[in-house]
Design a binder for these strands. Structure first.
Lengths: 145, 145
DNA sequence: TATTGTTATACTCTATAACTATA
DNA sequence: TATAGTTATAGAGTATAACAATA
């Protein structure tokens, strides 16, 4: 039978698109680390700080969001706390829990970091509104899969 | 004057696209690490092995491609060599240089790894040929930027 | 008993600086 | 003297296992 197997496509066009996505991913990461470094943060610290700038979170919850073990979060928060960017607050409802929260200085740094992340917006500047709409639609369909 | 400033766009559509790209990047990385882990490789080891599966390279060249210091490459190659996946060959033309090259087993593992990376192709399976062409065009324009 | 966060341990990746062997 | 690769060192992220405090 000439039925299409259920494997993923391997035609040249698809492979080229895969390669382009790989390039986008590589560039995004490079520039993310670079932006973090400009604020003397590691990538992990920048990600954690960005998360906390939205809302305080229990240590456990942070580990889930960062997809790492809770024991790692202890160290990352330790280092950010030593710099006065983050603090640990007790949770009166459940005294086992510690809420990690950004300080004012941490909030400022997180804002600066977000502004450094122009790299993700900048490449889009060359696209028209119609093109951005098209890109949004394609990315959405990719992610729904 | 009502001239457009040279800043990057911050309209809701653009920010939404930026967010979608961030999601693609996050998912790509997660699944890359996962695929590497299935072959008992770290992300760095998988990247280095994939590079070498194309052609042997001097240690220095590897460092450039991986965007890290040459001293790090020593360790990564050490660990891959200990597993018999990579070997160091002398370069008769310049005896200072060592060429890192995949072994047969390394080549097999690299192939398996590439096949595990279906995640990058799979989301594209739902797109038509026209959509993939459109996506290719948009990504190209983003990267030329 | 189960859960939250921490500590202890070990491994990998990372950059920096000093070293060696070639060139 | 300059370059390629290594070693030594130190800091950071990672997972695992054992632990204290609390539920």
């Amino acid at each position: 039978m000439a039925t299409q197997k259920t494997t993923t496509p391997t035609d040249p066009l698809t492979l080229e698109v895969v390669d382009l996505i790989g390039t986008v991913v590589a560039r995004y990461h490079e520039e993310y680390e670079e932006a973090a470094g400009e604020h003397s943060l590691t990538g992990a610290q920048a990600r954690l700080l960005s998360l906390l700038s939205l809302e305080p979170l229990p240590m456990r919850r942070l580990a889930q969001k960062l997809k790492c073990e809770p024991s790692n979060v202890t160290g990352i928060v330790d280092r950010l706390e030593a710099r006065g960017l983050v603090e640990r607050r007790p949770n009166p409802k459940d005294r086992r829990v510690k809420l990690a929260a950004v300080t004012e200085e941490g909030r400022r740094l997180a804002r600066g970091l977000r502004e450094s992340l122009d790299f993700a917006r900048e490449p889009l500047a060359g696209l028209s509104r119609e093109e951005r709409l098209a890109l949004r639609g394609l990315l959405r369909r990719m992610l729904e899969g």
